[in-house]
Write a protein that binds this DNA or RNA. Structure first.
Length: 545
RNA sequence: GCGCCCGUAGCUCAACUGGAUAGAGCAUCAGACUUCGGAUCUGAGGGUUGGGGGUUCGAGUCCCUCCGGGCGUACCA
């Protein structure tokens, strides 16, 4: 493909146009060949000539055989369609078997350090399904970036300072006193979930009943520490069950301890980006693409949430990351511009900060919506979802859709063990490949292309399968480039469809030694690609189901 | 009011970043098996891509404008 691109570049340059990006793509229609280009149409206007006429000339000047093309055709308004030489398909299979689990990986991002921050749930309660979507998406984005050679750090930011944590501590304290029969109310804006009653019980058991007699300030302080720690531990455990592990857990409180907040304030002041107005300190983000300037320090002297967040992202740059990707709930989208503006004003590159937004998840069960609200405590917990659907189904479902599309999680569908459930469909294709090797009584890793006549894979559906397998690396790099794991899902479902169809029509074991060898190579290649794709998604590729 | 996201088959969603006749799954209907695991396969029907205008060889995709949904719009976090 690169050979053809170079060859086209040369011919187009001969025609007098040098600065054109040659786009080569796989036509949707197989009668349009294996590859197609629109260069003739692109340059037609500049050369003031007819596209089809130019296409003729381009084809005439091409040295097809050096680009492994069997023949070319001109079609439609001026497309040039190419058919690959048969040898190309054999090379694809050799490549897949040779590279194994590395097939699809590339070095595009080599030397680039990327920080992917996701979930970052407040330590005020259990994770809910929205966090699950963020976790699956962030983890898959990180995996995609790794697959393209980036050096990736998965990071979780803990808001362990600030007003919400105060409310949490007060809520726990109220539950403790209620538990020993006293009058106490959950404060305004506090947390009503039952999990805090359980926590209060545990505190009384572990600390003794006299805990309820501690002076208010001291008790709330203890409640804060215990609550944050226990919520964090529970979140980590849920995430671990979900197959997500973080390289760095970053506490907001450490920003204060290490004076990064005040340092940031100093730097902004030094760069003359801030000013006083109405007794507050403002940050001139409007000059960098934000809709308006923002307050950093309120007139009562306390900081807004924005300031520690700037300090945090400034620290990401200081730690040597070339990019900082944040996976946020879509309800924070109003925050994107100001953070981007802040980083730009501090001299970070234009593409340093990037937010990926996930729409909140709506959950349906038995045909009706299950409402969840963190404050009232009646949300759908991620843990419950995992228990019901299993990790594979939950992760797969979260990744099926673009992150910024609204998404309805149908619990009934995800828990159904039938062909209506897409995750099983893909896994099943993999299982079937494994089943063939069981029947053949051989280790799939022993499959080799040595001495195998791959031209025997002449059935149309076999050719189509190899061509799709050949697209996997491009699919991975595109998905990584756009930070869209759902592209892998779409690809896998298409691949599984071809695999299952082929499997149904053709046999492998017992069709005669030569053909059997050739088909075993194809089976192995399909198995490898299915597994590699599922691995990026964080979904298992089972041998049996 | 202003800003961002979204609107594609009955339902849930794709569409290779502007390409050729807009595709899958589910649901519906009609078929296939003495199977290397039927959690399968083959086929059919189903569309003015929310409406209208524009940009160009070419628009679901870009621009404008309406309509509808979601979210944001704090000296909240």
């Amino acid at each position: 493909m690169e050979l053809l691109r170079a060859e086209l570049q040369r011919v187009v340059a001969d025609l007098g146009v040098s600065d054109v990006d040659i786009t080569l793509e796989r036509p949707a229609e197989s009668s349009h060949g294996d590859l197609a280009t629109n260069v003739a149409m692109q340059i037609a206007k500049r050369l003031r000539r007819k596209p089809r006429e130019l296409a003729e000339e381009v084809v005439a000047r091409l040295d097809l055989s050096s680009a492994a093309i069997s023949h070319a055709e001109i079609a439609g308004p001026g497309f040039i369609n190419f058919w690959l030489a048969g040898s190309v398909l054999s090379e694809v299979l050799c490549d897949v078997l040779h590279r194994g689990e590395n097939y699809g990986r590339s070095q595009e991002g080599i030397g680039r350090k990327v920080n992917v921050e996701f979930v970052s749930a407040n330590p005020t309660g259990p994770l809910h399904v929205g966090h699950g979507r963020g976790a699956a998406l962030g983890d898959a984005i990180a995996a995609l970036l790794e697959a393209t050679g980036h050096s990736v750090t998965r990071e979780f930011y803990v808001n362990d300072a600030g007003v919400q944590i105060d409310r949490l501590a007060e809520s726990v304290w109220a539950r403790v006193r209620q538990a020993v029969g006293r009058e106490a109310e959950i404060p305004e804006g506090g947390y009503h979930g039952e999990y805090l009653q359980e926590l209060a019980q545990r505190i009384l058991t572990e600390e003794g009943a006299e805990f309820a007699d501690l002076p208010e300030a001291q008790a709330v302080e203890r409640c804060r520490a215990i609550a944050v720690e226990s919520q964090r531990a529970e979140q980590d455990q849920t995430l671990a069950e979900f197959g997500v592990e973080f390289d760095v857990v970053y506490n907001e409180s450490s920003l204060y301890e290490q004076h990064r907040v005040t340092d940031t304030l100093d730097e902004l002041g030094g760069r003359e980006l801030t000013y006083e107005k109405d007794g507050a300190l403002w940050f001139g983000t409007a000059a960098y693409g934000d809709e308006k300037d923002r307050v950093l320090r309120k007139s009562d002297g306390s900081y807004t949430y924005f300031l520690p967040d700037i300090a945090y992202h400034r620290d990401k740059a200081a730690r040597g990351f070339d990019r900082a990707i944040d996976v946020w709930g879509a309800d924070h989208h109003g925050y994107v511009n100001r953070m981007a503006a802040a980083m730009k004003s501090l001299g970070a590159g234009e593409d340093f900060f990037q937010a990926v937004l996930v729409q909140l998840v709506r959950v349906m069960r038995h045909g009706e919506e299950v409402r969840f609200s963190k404050r009232s405590g009646t949300f759908v917990a991620l843990r419950d979802l995992i228990d019901e659907t299993g990790v594979d189904a939950a992760r797969y479902f979260f990744l099926m859709r673009k992150g910024d599309a609204q998404f309805v999680f149908d619990i009934d569908l995800a828990t159904r063990q039938s062909d209506e459930n897409p995750v099983y469909y893909v896994q099943y294709a993999h299982t079937r490949m494994a089943g063939i090797f069981r029947t053949a009584q051989m280790d799939p890793r022993d499959v080799t292309t040595d001495g195998v006549d791959l031209s025997l894979l002449s059935e149309p559906d076999e050719q189509a399968l190899v061509k799709l397998i050949a697209e996997f690396p491009t699919t991975v790099s595109r998905a990584a480039g756009s930070l869209e794991p759902h592209r892998i899902v779409v690809y896998l479902e298409k691949l599984a469809r071809l695999v299952n169809g082929w499997y149904h029509r053709h046999r492998v074991v017992g069709v005669g030694a030569d053909l059997e060898h050739a088909r075993l190579v194809l089976v192995r290649a399909a198995q490898v690609v299915l597994a590699n794709g599922l691995t990026i998604l964080g979904v298992t590729a089972p041998e049996r189901m």
